[in-house]
């Protein structure tokens, strides 16, 4: 009976994360497309295009798949997982998963004045400084985009991307 209970709990646990798993593929694909519509300073990260992922996230695996097939800005994509604020890499993009949303303020402080696109996935985070924030609108995967926050990171954004996102 105890075993059954454990199995049941494991099943529920599996189910609760399934949603994130399903969304992560599209989120990773969106991020890859963002790289075509954001302009980084030419001299920044001349060798690789670095995407940092804070902590554990399903998106890491999805981004890894893309990195094996595609380049960003003609550079090899390097996906770098980091586990503490102090280890934020010199990345082009930093992704803050929902589990780390509470530390966005610290992340933003770390990347201030650096050409790093900060992407999040929790409601209301563009108001808190995130450049792009994934949201579900009536079950559909969308993204909020803040031109001001992007510009303040020293990046340029295409009008096309602004049109596709929910402007904040």
């Amino acid at each position: 009976m105890k075993k059954l209970k454990i199995i049941f709990v494991v099943l529920l646990f599996t189910g609760s994360f399934a949603k994130a798993q399903s969304n992560s593929m599209f989120k990773a694909l969106f991020i890859y497309n963002f790289t075509k519509n954001i302009e980084w300073p030419v001299s920044y990260n001349p060798d690789n295009f670095v995407i940092g992922v804070f902590g554990n996230s399903e998106i890491t695996e999805e981004l890894d798949k893309i990195s094996k097939k595609k380049k960003a800005n003609n550079k090899t994509i390097v996906v770098q997982k980091f586990s503490s604020i102090d280890l934020v890499p010199q990345a082009n993009i930093v992704f803050v998963p929902i589990s780390k949303s509470g530390q966005l303020k610290d992340i933003l402080a770390k990347v201030k004045s650096k050409p790093i696109l900060v992407i999040t996935e929790s409601p209301g985070l563009t108001q808190k400084g995130s450049c792009i924030n994934f949201v579900l609108v009536k079950g559909d995967q969308k993204f909020e985009i803040s031109k001001n926050n992007i510009l303040s990171q020293g990046l340029k954004v295409s009008e096309e991307l602004l049109l596709l996102g929910i402007k904040m």
Partner: peptide
């Protein structure tokens, strides 16, 4: 990206919709 957004809408990636 716009095509991906369309696909994401069609796919309905939430667990309920799955």
């Amino acid at each position: 990206l716009n095509e991906l957004l369309t696909l994401a809408e069609i796919a309905g990636v939430s667990l309920e919709e799955l």
